[in-house]
Each structure stands twice: as structure tokens, then as C-alpha cells.
């Protein structure tokens, strides 16, 4: 069954288009990373999913229910960590959880949830107004876990968390995924999602520019290796010869350095071609493009990538 269906969604704010004819699906049980730089339209998409804002065009369904017409039904299946929320200053952490439990008609134990998200019992008895951003983030994650939701929607969940908190967050996502919960979460940092996601979608300027599994993305990226070569003299025509090798996409020369982008398995022939052409190779190193580079390539301006 399909957990989330986003079908031709466009959202305009006056002249500004936040999301443009967006369509994709998230399968049940999947951990889907929704990536993109700030302002790409991730939060708008999630806000439409939660019925906080209404799309100008298109439809969103969660487990087959329209998110606007059957919003309450949809949210009965959901656990949400929204972006840009604030807690109720005068209520304690425990009261927040009790409210979530009552709202979802669940029977969770607040103490267990506090422990799971890394808050102490003493924290739970304090007013949430005194919480740090990270603690508030943990508390609201706890509220999202109440009632064992079928779908977790986490909007920038690592905001305000220290590295340990971010790791706990990932552990919780993994635990939930192992139980069969579908997880949909957004981030502007790929590093936070690559270890837990089955699949990612990369959003840029309100449009999906890539949608693939992490393995798929890795394959795409491992195709490209950058060879940094420190050289002495470079005779005329040497670069041209290198560019002629099949699998080489780019070769540039600045001062005593050559930079050659190529497929991983033509590295040696690049080096031998250089030497045959009379180039004095003093040193070289290879750099495999990381997912991060790919992500940057997808999400920054085209010209910047090529430059």
C-alpha cells in the first residue's frame, strides 16, 4: 500500500511558487529522506501533508485518505515532529505527553516515552518553557511516537540537537522503521539521512530533481572520480590527448596542477597517457565524489558546479 501519494501539487503564494507540480510516492514501511536546501519547498510540502496549508493545485493522500477532506483521520495515523513549533511554556513535559496520549486516545506511559527520547523524569516534571531547543525537540518527538503511528513525519528533526541527540534520533527512526512504521523526514543535510534512508528525493526550487535509493545514488556518484595530479612541464596537446580518452569528462590545468574528472577504471590509462605525452608526474591523488558532492551538485546552481 502507498503511504504517501503526492499528486501534481503546486503551491503559489502570490507570485512566488513554493512547490511546482510535485508528484511522488512513498511506499508503506519505507524510510524516505526528503532533501533539499532551505527554501526548496520541503516545509511547504509537509505543511500541505498536514493540512496546515492548502495546495493551489493537486492532491495529497496518506494511506488513501485525502489530507484535506479527511485530515483528522489522516492525523490519527500520523506522528509528527513539525518545523518551527513551540511548546506550551507553562505545561510540563509530562503534561505535553499526557495531552498527546489523550488526543490520540492511546494508552502509552509518559515515563517510558520520556526515557525513550532521552529526557529524565525530572525533566518531565519541569515546565517546558525552560527547555532548550534540543530538549523541546526530544519532547515533541516523544509526542510524535505516542499511539504507535503508522507514519512518522519529521520535519528537520535534527534541528537543535547535539551529535549525541542526532544519533539517538536516528536510532529511534531505525527502531520505528524496523517495526514497520513508514518514516518521511526532511533535512537540508544529506549526512543526517544517508545512514537511515531507503530512498531519498531531492527537492530544488519546488521541484523534485532526483529520486533514488541511497545505493542508486552511490552508483551514480562512484562513476565519477577526480584525479589531482601535480606536474612539472605540460607539453602542448597533452591535455587534448587525455580528454580524448573514453570515460574522461573533464581535464583542466592550473599552474602545476591538473584536475581530471573521469570514471574510476580509466585512472591508470589517464596517468600512462600523461607520461607518454611527456608530462612529468610528480604526485597524484584520487578523490571519489561523495554523496554530499552529488547532493551539492543537485542543489546548488548549475554554473557553480561546473566552475
Amino acid at each position: 500500500m502507498t503511504a504517501i501519494e503526492i499528486d501534481g501539487v503546486t503551491k503559489r503564494y502570490g507570485d512566488v511558487v513554493a512547490v511546482r507540480d510535485l508528484s511522488f510516492e512513498v511506499e508503506e514501511g519505507e524510510v524516505f529522506g526528503f532533501l533539499g536546501p532551505n527554501g526548496a519547498g520541503k516545509s511547504t510540502t509537509i505543511n500541505i501533508l498536514l493540512d496546515f496549508v492548502r495546495p493551489t493545485e493537486g492532491e495529497v493522500r496518506v494511506f488513501g485518505h485525502d489530507v484535506h477532506d479527511e485530515s483528522v483521520t489522516v492525523r490519527e495515523h500520523l506522528g509528527v515532529l513539525p518545523e518551527g513549533f513551540s511548546v506550551y511554556d507553562r505545561l510540563t513535559g509530562r503534561q505535553h505527553l499526557e495531552f498527546a496520549i489523550e488526543s490520540k486516545d492511546a494508552d502509552d506511559d509518559p515515563a517510558e516515552i520520556l526515557e525513550r527520547v532521552g529526557l529524565s523524569a525530572a525533566d518531565g516534571d519541569r515546565k517546558a518553557g525552560g527547555y532548550s531547543k534540543g530538549m523541546a525537540q526530544r519532547l515533541v518527538l516523544g509526542m510524535a511516537l505516542v499511539g504507535d503511528p503508522d507514519l512518522l513525519v519529521l520535519d528537520e528533526p535534527s534541528t537543535g540537537l547535539d551529535p549525541q541527540g542526532a544519533r539517538q534520533m536516528r536510532d529511534i527512526v531505525r527502531e520505528e522503521a524496523d517495526k514497520g512504521t513508514t518514516v518521511f523526514f526532511s533535512s537540508h543535510i544529506l549526512g543526517q539521512v544517508e545512514s537511515v534512508c531507503d530512498r531519498v528525493g531531492i527537492l530544488r526550487d519546488g521541484q523534485l530533481v532526483a529520486e533514488d535509493s541511497i545505493e542508486g545514488l552511490r552508483e551514480t556518484t562512484s562513476a565519477d572520480t577526480v584525479l589531482h595530479v601535480t606536474v612539472g612541464e605540460v607539453p602542448d596537446g597533452a591535455l587534448a590527448e587525455v580528454r580524448g580518452i573514453e570515460g574522461v569528462t573533464e581535464a583542466t590545468h592550473t599552474g602545476s596542477r591538473l584536475e581530471i574528472s573521469c570514471e574510476n577504471d580509466v585512472k591508470t590509462s589517464v596517468l600512462s597517457t600523461l607520461e607518454e605525452a611527456g608530462v612529468e608526474v610528480e604526485d597524484f591523488e584520487t578523490e571519489e565524489a561523495s554523496l554530499e558532492d552529488l547532493f551539492m551538485a543537485y542543489t546548488t546552481d548549475k554554473q557553480e558546479v561546473e566552475a
Binding site: S71, P82, G84, S86, V87, F99, S103
Partner: peptide, 14 residues
């Protein structure tokens, strides 16, 4: 304005 409404409406309330 504070954003606590997002918490409220993330739960199954109309």
C-alpha cells in the same frame, strides 16, 4: 504566532 498551534494540529484535532 508562536507555533504551538502546529503541535496542536499535528495531533488528530480539527
Amino acid at each position: 504566532e508562536s507555533g504551538s498551534l502546529k503541535l496542536l494540529l499535528s495531533l488528530p484535532h480539527s
